[in-house]
Each structure stands twice: as C-alpha cells, then as structure tokens.
C-alpha cells in the first residue's frame, strides 16, 4: 500500500512537471513571439524590444527555461503584463468564484447524468432510451456559449426568471465577509439569508448551463454500465429469487454501475473547471479564473494566460489522483488486488 502510494505520488510529480514543460514549450518554442503578441498589433519595434528585455525574453531559451522552472516550483507563475500583479495571487483570489460555480455545476451534471443514464438503461432500446440518447447528442453537439446566450435571452430578457448576469450577486447586494470564499456559504455563516438566497439564484443560472453541458458523458457511461449490471449474472441471481425490481435496480444495478462514474468525474470536473468555463464565466461576468483567462486573452497577456493553463493542468492531475484513491476505496475488488 505504501509502495503503491509512493509510486502514485511519483507519477503525480512527473505529471505536474510535464505540464509545466509542455506549456513552456508551447508558449516559448512555437514560432510565436510573446513580446510581439503582448505589445499588440500597432507597437513599434522599439516597444517590442523593451518588453522583450523587461520580461527576460532576450535571454537564451535555456536560461529562460531554468528560471521558469525554478519559479514554477516556488509557485510563482510570473507577472501579468496587463495588471503588473503576480499571476499566482490573481488566480488565487479568483479561484473561489470558479470553484463555487464548478462544484454546483458538477453536482447538477452528476444528478442529471446519473438520473437520465439509469432511466435510459431501465428502458433500454425503447422510446424513452432513444429520446434520452438524442438529447445526449444534442447536448454534446451544441456550442455551450450559444446555449448560454440563448438562455440569457430567454430566461432574463424574455421571461425574467433570472436577474441579468452581472457577476456573483445581483445589483444592490454587498458581498458577505469572506470565510470560505463561497458567497452562498459565507452569507449563511453570517446569518444573512437574503444574500445567501440571492447568491444562490445568481449562481444557479450559469451552474445549470455548465452542468447540462457536462452531463452527456456521464449519461453515456451510466447508461452502459447500468445495462451491463442489469444484464449480469448476479442480477439474474436476484431475479431468480424474485427480488423486487427496485431492489435489483439499486443493489445490483446502481451499486455496480456507479463505480466507473467515479473515474469519469475527473474528466468532467476538468471540463467544468476549464473547458466550458472560460466561455460561461465571460458571458455571465462571473469573476473567476475563466474570466481572467478571457481578459488576458483579449489583452494579449500571454503570461497570465499561461498561468491559468498551468493551474488547470496541475489541478486535473491532482484531482485524478484523489479520484483514483476514492475508486480504490469504493471497489472492493481493486482494494484486494493491490492490498496484499
């Protein structure tokens, strides 16, 4: 157990270093010129040259790489060209907003994905299943920014269900005292139910879209693993005893079907945190790291964008290690196979 733990953290370290190296390679060795990009289209050569010196881009690549890696291990992701602030600090201040949105979106995606997946499996090869599969195709073939835009148009402008998306709270509310950084939790801690409600309503809208966007892969995996479990030998044994369908669905179907979901959640979480997030946060003026990435992109701030991408990659690797441990706990077969 200890040895496999060490091996696992070894893989994690290699992965994290790999992420840093890959991103350096992309941002520095591809034939782009970060100084030229940062200076903008209309900068003079002298301005570009000045930026190049300022950020050490005139040094040999190896020296730059060495500095970059040393900084990386000191958790220093460089300085934003746009704001002049350390990228690490800026990302960390914005992280709670993204995580709050991401967690609720993940919850929605899992509930939706497991619900629809099980429904499709129970009615497999019949009309309900076909409808769910078609929904899955359309949910995964629709551009998330397009759906979000239409949703804002319908829910805010036409029907007035949600207030217009201008950040984490509607106009007229003050943010609660920061404890966890999650507005809903912080407002509850402060005993301010009204703010908590307003924050939750504001949060719900983008979280629903992000959750919907992330759910198709969960539906697919839950459907196929539930079908496999329901058609398994052990489900047949249960039927031979005449167990009620609910018991078979729960004990034989779900229990065994949800295991693969745990590993899949890693992918979905990475997706929720990053994939659709840049687009959703920008459209909803959500002050998280996705919006930071968008702003950096618009202002040609490659260093800030690079910091964002590194954060995403590292988070994803660490998340997967945690999930693998969780899987080990959940599936007795894996635990035994390795726990000698």
């Amino acid at each position: 157990m200890l040895r496999s733990g060490l091996a696992r953290s070894g893989i994690a370290v290699v992965g994290v270093v790999g992420v840093a190296v890959l991103i350096f390679f992309i941002t520095r060795l591809l034939p782009g010129d970060p100084a030229r990009v940062a200076a903008g289209q209309y900068a003079t050569d002298a301005q570009v040259e000045q930026l190049r010196r300022q950020y050490g881009l005139d040094q040999p690549v190896l020296v730059q790489f060495g500095r970059y890696m040393v900084d990386f291990f000191r958790l220093d992701l460089g300085t934003s060209i746009r704001t002049g602030q350390p990228v690490t600090d800026e990302l960390l201040t914005r992280l709670p907003a993204t995580v709050e949105l991401g967690l609720l979106a993940l919850l929605i995606a899992v509930v939706l994905g497991v619900g629809l997946g099980v429904l499709a499996a129970v009615h497999r090869h019949r009309v309900v299943d076909k409808i769910i599969q078609l929904l899955v195709v359309f949910a995964s073939a629709a551009a998330v920014f397009w759906i979000a835009l239409l949703a804002i148009y319908l829910f805010v402008n036409e029907w007035g269900v949600f207030t217009s998306p201008i950040g984490r709270l509607p106009r007229g509310y003050a943010p609660p005292d920061p404890v966890t950084g999650f507005y809903v939790v912080d407002a509850l801690l402060a005993g301010d139910l009204e703010t908590a409600g307003a924050a939750l309503r504001t949060l719900l809208f983008p979280a629903m879209l992000l959750g919907l966007h992330a759910s198709p892969s969960i539906v697919k995996i839950v459907r196929s693993s539930t079908i496999r479990a329901l058609e398994s030998d052990y489900a047949r044994t249960s039927r031979s005893f005449g167990y009620p369908p609910g018991s078979i669905l729960f004990h034989d179907g779900l229990r065994n079907a949800l295991l693969p979901v745990i590993t899949n959640i890693g992918l979905v979480a990475g997706f929720v945190l990053a994939g659709g997030n840049v687009l959703i946060e920008q459209l909803y003026a959500w002050p998280g790291i996705g919006q930071y990435a968008y702003d950096s992109l618009q202002e040609n701030d490659l260093f800030a964008l690079r910091g964002y991408v590194i954060l995403i990659g590292v988070t994803y690797i660490l998340l997967n290690i945690v999930l693998e441990l969780a899987y080990r706990r959940a599936d007795p077969r894996v635990a035994v196979a390795e726990g000698r």
């Binding site: 030998d233 052990y234 249960s238 031979s240 005893f241 005449g242 004990h251 065994n256 007795p332």
Partner: peptide, 20 residues
C-alpha cells in the same frame, strides 16, 4: 405465477454481487 423454485448457476463467482 412464480413457481416455488430456485436456481444455482454456472460460474458461481459471477452469480454473486461483487460489491456486497
């Protein structure tokens, strides 16, 4: 109706729920 009969199967290990 359900006959009062039970069954045992080939491959007993697969016939039992692996998570219980």
């Amino acid at each position: 109706e359900r006959p009062n009969a039970t069954m045992i199967f080939q491959n007993p290990t697969a016939a039992l729920n692996p998570t219980m």
